[in-house]
Write a protein that binds this DNA or RNA. Structure first.
Lengths: 141, 141
DNA sequence: TATTTTTACTTTCAAATTGCAAGCAATAAT
DNA sequence: ATTATTGCTTGCAATTTGAAAGTAAAAATA
């Protein structure tokens, strides 16, 4: 545990936090699919192992990208939500979606192509709409 | 070897290609620092091991993100260059740089902050300038 | 109230990946 | 002809991953 940066480069430092095969999928599930709980993340189609999920959630929390909370009427279920640091990863994810849409078209299902199509239609508006939605969710909690 | 996609999601599929701690650093070195050879990549300050570098270069080549060539007067030195698929990763890298600039400011050296400052001043112009430069390099070879 | 189910993990262990160091063969420079 | 450089590969120990099973606390159900 404890973050260890390889250098003082912007890209390298970001990769030290989220540069693996799972962290961004958790952010994807939170941003685009509204997932909030451990079991919701575990149910995603890429089938992350629960020990890895547990590890990545605590890494992301330690990095200040997500935070862990509870709902007032439930002492068991943890509710994970994006911090501003996590929310501002949206433009990076949008660009990755657009890259895949252009370059890996044969692997992308219609459902996912749909999201790319919406972004392509008006990227700026989509980004603003998402920011508004994600920031509202922060205020609720 | 052989690509293995976990799902048909755009983000997941991109991560299956470049979702590790080293691949994007190679793209960074090519895009922003004009690095082209094995030993130039090996000399970067994050100190990638040569076996890992070798593995990542062949993965990126297999994925069509970079290509391997030679200069006419040198039979030894391999020259790696970005394909259009690699060049179009630029906007994703730019957004990651901006994210780090905002969220990991304390880790970023003045040199790297400078790049972020240029991007912030006029992201669109910077992107166009970089595309022009990177596409010109393709034509030369 | 007692029992069952759900939730969020943790543990175990084998397999895969990583990283350090050394080695190497072909080419290029001296 | 000799030395240096380049782009790797190999060997091996350490770390990380992933599948499966186990667990403890809370919540739902009977």
């Amino acid at each position: 545990m404890g973050l260890n940066f390889r250098s003082n480069c912007a890209i390298s430092s970001a990769l030290d936090l989220i540069g693996d095969k799972w962290s961004l999928l958790i952010l994807r599930d939170m941003m685009f699919f509204g997932k909030k709980t451990f079991s919701e993340f575990a149910a995603s189609e890429e089938k992350i192992a629960t020990n890895i999920l547990s590890d990545r959630l605590s890494n992301l929390e330690e990095a200040g990208i997500i935070k862990k909370g509870k709902l007032p009427d439930n002492k068991k279920t943890n509710i994970y939500s994006l911090t501003p640091k996590g929310i501002t990863f949206l433009p990076s994810l949008i660009e990755v979606i657009l890259w895949s849409d252009r370059n890996l078209a044969e692997h992308i299902t219609p459902e996912n192509k749909l999201l790319a199509d919406i972004i392509k239609k008006d990227k700026h508006s989509f980004t603003e709409m998402m920011y508004a939605k994600l920031e509202k969710e922060i205020i609720i909690k």
